[in-house]
Nucleic acid binder design. Structure first.
Length: 658
RNA sequence: GCCCCUGUAGCUCAGUUGGCCAGAGCACUCGCCUUGUAAGCGAGAUGUCGUCGGUUCGAUUCCGACCGGGGGCUCCA
């Protein structure tokens, strides 16, 4: 692919692209060009001077966005063909696809989507041309758009909007894209800053995915529009691959696997977002907790315990109540006090710090617990284990001197990453959440925010990991770093957070005595490693698709006798493994061994230990692993050593004979 | 919280255009079979058709409210 081509004055970019011999169709088709100012231009753009431009192919990130936005236009045209009363909202490209918002009398039904999709296919086939047209003035635009109230609103705000989401306006000018049929007749059009594909025929593969409601311009004060989501790709194969990825994600859904593997459930009787862990899920949860607790203690944390409820004064002191009252469960009144279920642990840890005088010699003081917290999440956001109303935070608070804060944060980040790696996640990036200076949600002085943000940023940069800014994403009391982890199929999950807090130590009057005898205020560093045990368990279920590493697996070995009378032999084997702390069961059911293998396979048990006449005679067992591989006739001592080794090493792959 | 969809056996799902005892597969129980690497054969048991109310001679089916679940929006200390 040529890096650049020159478009001679008065000719179109398309001509230059063609002259350079670059493809106009196919999976690497050039769909737009980038001009020297960095702006993307349509292929029928004709500069007034000779201009060097960079061709942009349909499979590049920018090319994909153009493809998807053009497909969104086709969607809007199809909707207005079928529902002439539909008013247009916005229709930007998004990750893997696009959406378009409509104001319609009746929300779209699944039937409607297939009708719309069919109409879109006709439009694509018709090969309509996208033609750019500039409005002479805002007044002219308003006249033409008189019947589109939402577009009118956009004309008024012009380019003064979030550029990524609003494709309609920008670059300080008002433009329109008309769709022309093969006879050059205008059949449809939309306010849009562009650019677009040259023709609808260049949309190789698309599919409508779902419809949902969305607030106009993202505010719940505004009316709700009906949003249709779709996806579009440079080839049918890529569309198919994308749909396969979605199916794979569905196959890994922890809610489904959780019930199939008998790990946890959400009894209606308890209420939404309140999980119970069954014995098998309990094993995983306990293994996680035991390991994480041990690692914390190794790293100098001290395990503490605090209650689930507290009088309200505590949350006034901490400053949480004014900010989060709506997402805390309502208080219960007893003996003249209002008690709240706790939604965060830090205030209670502060009380532990404050319980006696502290010396600089004790710092950093690191308190840690699995604190049960309850948050009244809105009913619409509750989702499996990843968004619940009651959960255990693996929460720690490090109290340090101001000077020592960078070192402590570095220590925490290193610790967190090693912990995540221990559980098999090893692809990370960091996000730095800072305050929005325009919002009054944040408390503390500019100087405090600058200090905290700088300290976090320096540590994040030093880690060498990719760092993504998240302006306005901080908690009200301080900036934070969060660790985002990619799972086995490339999805990212926000895991750990580290927060720099200069606020609570002051509110609680925390102090320690320094070497010079003066009283000083510590800085507090909040750190949640998994965020919530429940959520991390859900993430692990999806990451491993339910096939947990041997050290976490609820049942690590299942003994499968070939005939009933081999069961006793396997029980002896099992007894020896149990003495080593291995979780083993022998399948004495009346099923035949092929069925037992299938059952163990479906339960994703790491080791199947099979024994028949040959094994009993030879003093061996035969392993079958989850991947179907086998190791037959393994002497008992060796078999036991093998299982114990795999479990104790905490390897996150296998086991396998391969 | 808002919008749309949805709730039938432990699980996955049929079904009833309002009407006698509501069905299948898997799982479960009991028999038979005694078996070498992903489902042996047979029999049996299983449901106030999410809950409460309304319409109706009659509701699992229609309507409403509530409680769950799903997809989004908004939110996420």
């Amino acid at each position: 692919m040529a890096d650049s081509v020159v478009v001679p004055a008065g000719t179109t970019a398309a001509d230059a692209v063609a002259a350079a011999g670059l493809p106009r169709i196919g999976p690497r088709a050039v769909v737009v060009v980038r001009d020297p100012s960095g702006r993307l231009r349509d292929l029928d753009w004709a500069p007034e001077l000779d201009t060097e431009v960079a061709p942009v192919t349909i499979d590049s990130p920018e090319g994909l966005a153009v493809l998807r936005h053009s497909t969104a236009h086709v969607l809007a045209q199809a909707v207005q063909d079928l529902f002439p009363e539909a008013k247009l909202g916005i229709g930007p490209p998004i990750e893997n696809g696009f959406y378009y918002d409509f104001d319609v009398e009746k929300p779209f039904q699944p039937d409607d989507l297939s009708k719309i999709e069919k109409r879109m296919q006709q439009i694509v086939k018709a090969g309509q041309t996208f033609r750019r047209r500039e409005y002479a003035s805002a007044e002219q635009a308003k006249m033409e758009l008189a019947h589109e109230p939402y577009k009118l609103e956009l004309v008024d705000i012009k380019g003064d909007v979030d550029a990524a989401e609003v494709m309609e306006v920008g670059h300080g000018e008002l433009t329109h894209y008309d769709n022309l049929d093969s006879g050059g007749e205008r059949v449809w059009g939309d306010l849009c800053r562009g650019p677009h594909l040259p023709s609808t025929r260049m949309i190789p593969a698309f599919k409508l995915m779902r419809s949902a409601a969305a607030y106009w311009r993202g505010s719940e004060k505004n009316p709700q529009l009906q949003r249709i989501y779709g996806t579009a790709w440079p080839s049918r194969d890529e569309l198919k691959a994308y749909l396969t990825r979605l199916a794979e994600a569905e196959r890994r859904d922890h809610r489904k696997l959780g019930s199939e593997l008998d790990l946890f459930s959400f009894p209606d009787e308890l209420g939404s977002g309140l999980p119970v862990f069954h014995p098998k899920g309990g094993v995983i949860k306990r293994e996680m907790e035991d390991y994480v607790r041990a690692r914390h203690i190794e790293e100098g944390f001290q395990y503490v315990g605090t209650p689930h409820i507290s009088k309200e004064g505590l949350f006034h002191t901490s400053g949480h109540l004014p900010y989060y009252a709506e997402t805390m469960f309502p208080p219960m009144s007893m003996e003249g006090s209002d008690y709240y279920l706790k939604a965060m642990n830090c205030p209670m840890h502060n009380l532990i710090f404050r319980s006696r005088g502290r010396s600089y010699r004790e710092l950093p003081l690191r308190l840690f617990e699995f604190g049960s917290v309850y948050r009244y999440e809105k009913s619409g956001v509750i989702h499996g284990l990843t968004r619940v109303r009651g959960f255990a935070q693996d929460d720690s608070h490090s109290y340090v001197t101001r000077e020592d804060a960078p070192h402590e944060i570095e220590h925490l980040l290193t610790f967190i990453l090693s912990l995540l790696r221990d559980f098999g996640l090893d692809d990370f990036y960091l996000e730095l959440s800072t305050r929005d200076p325009k919002s009054d949600k944040f408390i503390g002085s500019d100087e405090q925010w600058e200090t905290g943000t700088r300290v976090l940023e320096e540590v994040a940069v030093a880690s060498g990991l990719e760092l993504v800014p998240d302006p306005g994403g901080a908690a009200y009391y301080g900036p934070k770093i969060s660790v985002q982890a990619r799972d086995a199929i490339g999805r990212t999950w926000q895991m750990s957070t580290i927060q720099y807090d200069f606020n609570q130590p002051a509110r609680f009057g925390l102090e320690y005595q320094a070497a010079d005898g003066s009283r000083q205020e510590p800085v507090m560093i909040h750190a949640a490693k998994f965020g919530s045990i429940e959520r991390f368990l859900g993430v692990l279920v999806e990451h491993y698709a339910g096939a947990f590493p041997a050290w976490l697996a609820p049942v690590q070995v299942v003994g499968i006798p070939i005939r009933d009378d081999h069961g006793g032999y396997l029980e002896e084997f099992a007894a020896r493994l149990r003495r080593e702390g291995i979780r083993i069961e022998v399948d004495h059911s009346t099923d035949r061994m092929q069925k037992k293998i299938r059952t163990a396979q479906q339960q994703k048990i790491p080791f199947m230990a099979i024994a028949g006449d040959d094994d009993v005679t030879g003093g061996t067992v035969s392993f079958r692993y989850r991947d179907g591989s086998q190791r037959n006739g393994v002497p008992l001592d060796e078999a036991i050593a093998h299982v114990v080794e795999v479990v104790r090493s905490r390897v996150n792959t296998g086991p396998s004979a391969a």
